[in-house]
Design a binder for these strands. Sequence first.
DNA 1: TAGGTATGGCGTGGCTCGAG
DNA 2: CTCGAGCCACGCCATACCTA
Length: 377
Amino acid sequence: MSTTPAAILDVAFQQAEASIAQPIVTNPSIAKKIDYVSSYVGNRAVVRLLLACALAAIHRVNVDIRKPYTEIGTPDAYSGRYYDESYITAFINQHELPCNPTTAFLTPALRNRNITLTPAVNLVGRPPKLYEAALQLLDDVHQGRITALELLAETLRCLIIARNQKRQRMETLLADLKKSEDAIPLSAEEIVTLLQQHLACRGSSRLPVLIVAAAYQVAEQYIGERFLPLKSHNAADEQTGALGDVEITLVDDEKVITSYEIKTRRVTLADIDRALQKINNTGKRVDNYIFITTDVIEEGIREYASSMYERTGGIEIVVLDCISFVRHFLHLFHRLRSQFLSAYQQLVLREPDSAVSQPLKEAFLALRQAAESAREF
DNA sequence: TAGGTATGGCGTGGCTCGAG
DNA sequence: CTCGAGCCACGCCATACCTA
């Protein structure tokens, strides 16, 4: 086929937008399956399987949509991963469609396969119903119940609707916050409470990193220190070459002087030993290595950490509690507390969904709004 | 040989599920 | 209900093959 994959995607996208209120697929049970896979919040990878396979089937008319693995070895097999990574990634980023940032073909259920994806296959992914629905949809195309283009366009239609709903919710939340903008700003303790509420939400493990980063961002001009760009949440420190989760340098220097390592569990002796090893291996000789934990700090750990100052000849290692850290900060820089709050909000909203989920972002705005509107009475 | 294509692999930490 | 084991997504990396 002469049309490029990018052009195919554009055409399908236009078709979806033109028919946004009207399902493109008329068969109700098939439309329902597409909607289910496109909208399921707990797993955003499988919808990419549909997009990639449908795209390949349109682009190369001779392929069997159910065979997205070249390892199958037949002429009608193709690389689903290649279509996914090369075309789908750019496309969903361009249109901000709510999908996994990385390919579906590296997820455990779909990787290392060399089989035809028929409805009889058990992909062993979660939830099972989601994978079953996707396999049935590939079969629906194969059996001719719908065309690959219909599958692609209808999937895009569902994704556009989900995206628009998400934007709408965010706009409403931000607009509500604006209303309370002129009220008396939250007190330091009220901000602490707000952060505690946010930390209590599901999937909050990235938040302590953002709390520390926000504190430095706001205090930068006063203390002459700043934080280096944050590394991605799931990347191993080893891969990124970072010493810890937040690295602090002097404003006019690249040399890391303080490194923060954030743990959502108890800090152990092994963590401290590993930190020392990391300092030695990377050759980044920091002054100060700070563990921030959201869990309890055992006395033995505290002592072990402080003993390092002498043992290392001047590297101070300390374990701090996340909430105490931010509470001290907010009282010390009391006049900056509102700036801290907006810096934190900005960092939260700008994190990729893989680190801070959409519900967690919305939860913060809602919690803040509740706290601020309560002040007006 | 260089750049593109295709696929496999790994470490981390969140999450689910089932045993007790 | 609690908690530990194992599953899983995620982002990055490694490698092998192909072809101009």
